[in-house]
Amino acid sequence: MAETDAKSEHTVSYSISAESKTATHTVIEARDFEFSVDEPTNVGGTNAGPNPVEYMLGALAGCLNVVGHTVAEEMDITVRNIAVSIEGDLDPRKFMGRAEEPRAGYQDVRVDLTVDSPADEATLADWLETVEARCPVSDNFQNPTPVSLSVTSD
């Protein structure tokens, strides 16, 4: 049996680096890009960028778009555009240290895809099922992913 932490020859690794600018503002570098994560001013941030959980929803939208177009091409379905609307609900009490339950992350995420396509409903239902199964970000939302944290002091 293979070790669970062994990478296959097909594994692609991604990495970022980040540094805090303030208690709420983080600057992230990914490949040749830099972006900010921050909280809105009404919760003590400087509003220098979307907050972490908004980026999660944005990552899901971006991934669904890429996978949606890829799958449509493979299935020979004409898709002129995909508009994605996502809402997620979370209870901030655990994050704020005010309660142990419920979990800190999203409790519910609702995704609506509006597809500009001449395809019929049955074809689009098959397309959506394939998109959901193949979207890496959707997979991470729906399944536990091991995360290993460590700390080093300067």
Rank of each mutant, 00 (worst) to 15 (best):
T41Y: 05
T24N: 11
P40L: 07
V27N: 08
P92G: 00
D5A: 10
V43P: 09
E100Y: 06
Q142Y: 02
V111L: 08
D116T: 11
Y106M: 02
M75K: 12
C63R: 08
N143V: 00
S138A: 14
D32K: 15
P92M: 02
G97E: 04
M96W: 10
A122S: 13
V131T: 01
V37A: 13
M1K: 11
A125Q: 12
G44V: 09
D5L: 14
D126R: 15
V71M: 06
I16V: 14
G88H: 05
N51Y: 07
M1F: 03
A61S: 13
Y106H: 03
A119G: 06
S13H: 11
F95V: 12
V66A: 12
A48Y: 09
S8T: 15
Q142D: 14
N42Y: 14
E39F: 10
T114G: 03
S8H: 07
K7S: 12
W127K: 09
V12N: 02
G97W: 00
L149C: 04
L57Y: 07
A30T: 11
R103I: 02
S13L: 14
T130S: 10
P102F: 05
S153D: 12
S8L: 11
K21R: 14
S20E: 01
V131H: 00
T11L: 06
T24C: 03
A83E: 13
T46W: 04
A125W: 05
P102E: 06
I77A: 00
L64R: 00
D89K: 10
R80S: 14
E87H: 02
A72E: 00
T26V: 14
A23I: 07
A59Q: 03
E132H: 09
G45P: 03
A99Q: 11
F35T: 02
P102Y: 08
R110Y: 09
G68V: 00
A119Q: 00
G49V: 08
P52W: 06
I28C: 11
D108N: 15
T46C: 03
Q107S: 15
L124D: 08
A104D: 11
V84T: 13
L113D: 08
F95L: 15
A104Y: 08
E19T: 15
I28H: 06
V137M: 04
T114I: 13
M75P: 02
E121R: 10
